[in-house]
């Protein structure tokens, strides 16, 4: 699904990723953990092509295609989805209009027939229900005045409608109370399938009690310094990250 080799990236001329290697197979769930400033969020932004994030070396392939030469929207069409840690508010653009534009664009490029308005509305309402978001949110401006938890659930709703191949969840659990976390985890678990992979970027192992990862990686100093199974996350919770910096 995803193959990253020796990825180096910088933001404002400051090197953040320094030789990151990561391979995620189809249907797998990988967790990336690490201390603040280790480059966890940067990885997602680099893969999504955010302005200001410069790749200086290395490669990243999604489904065998070179991700780094594609425009941001082309990456989305191919199947990449980044759930933001801080979703953007867009007053004046309704959530519905935004979702329809996204779904239409993605389906068009995947050669899937367009959804008519009625079918789209039906799917959108179902997605709202699945993430426990009132349908009134469809008519509001994108994320406009949403609470932190509502924004995260709105991200999840977009993910459900776009049916991506690789979902990168950037600290989706941060700022969520335990009920909201359960809703988000249920949503993610429901979307797991043999041809869809997940990268859960998180600070805490708490999320991994709800979504069992196949692999856990520790990112430190811009590289993956240790990988293991779920037990690594539990160990991190017990021991913190400091001991790994010695390993690195």
């Amino acid at each position: 699904m995803l193959k990253i080799d020796n990825l180096h990236a910088s933001v404002e001329n400051k090197a953040i990723l320094k030789g990151l290697d990561l391979t995620v197979g189809a249907g797998e769930v990988h967790a990336i953990m690490g201390p603040n400033g280790s480059g966890k969020s940067t990885l997602g932004h680099v893969l999504a092509g955010r302005p200001g994030y410069t790749v200086t070396a290395g490669s990243a392939q999604l489904l065998g295609q070179d991700l780094l030469t594609l425009d941001t929207e082309e990456r989305a069409h191919l199947g990449l989805f980044l759930a933001y840690q801080y979703p953007v508010e867009i007053p004046g653009v309704s959530n519905m209009e935004f979702l329809k534009a996204s779904v239409d664009a993605v389906r068009e490029h995947r050669n899937v027939p367009a959804l008519d308005s009625v079918s789209f509305m039906k799917q959108a309402r179902e997605a709202c229900k699945a993430v426990n978001l009132d349908q009134a949110f469809l008519k509001r401006g994108v994320n406009e005045g949403f609470s932190g938890g509502e924004k995260k659930r709105n991200e999840l709703m977009q993910m459900m409608l776009l049916a991506p191949k690789l979902c990168i969840m950037d600290e989706t659990d941060s700022g969520l109370d335990i009920d909201a976390l359960q809703v988000v985890a249920d949503g993610i678990n429901a979307m797991r399938s043999a041809d869809r992979s997940f990268i859960l970027v998180t600070h805490y192992q708490r999320l991994l009690n709800f979504i069992k990862p196949d692999r856990v990686h520790v990112l430190s100093g811009g590289r993956i310094v240790k990988s293991g199974d779920h037990s690594l996350a539990l160990e991190l919770e017990e021991r913190g990250y400091a001991w790994l910096e010695d390993v690195a």
Binding site: T72, A76, I90, A105, L162
Partner: peptide, 19 residues
């Protein structure tokens, strides 16, 4: 960044600018 956000959802740049 708002423009980029729309594009990460697959909306082409020119349409995102109009929206």
């Amino acid at each position: 960044l708002t423009l980029h956000y729309l594009r990460t959802r697959g909306v082409p740049r020119d349409e995102a600018e109009v929206m």
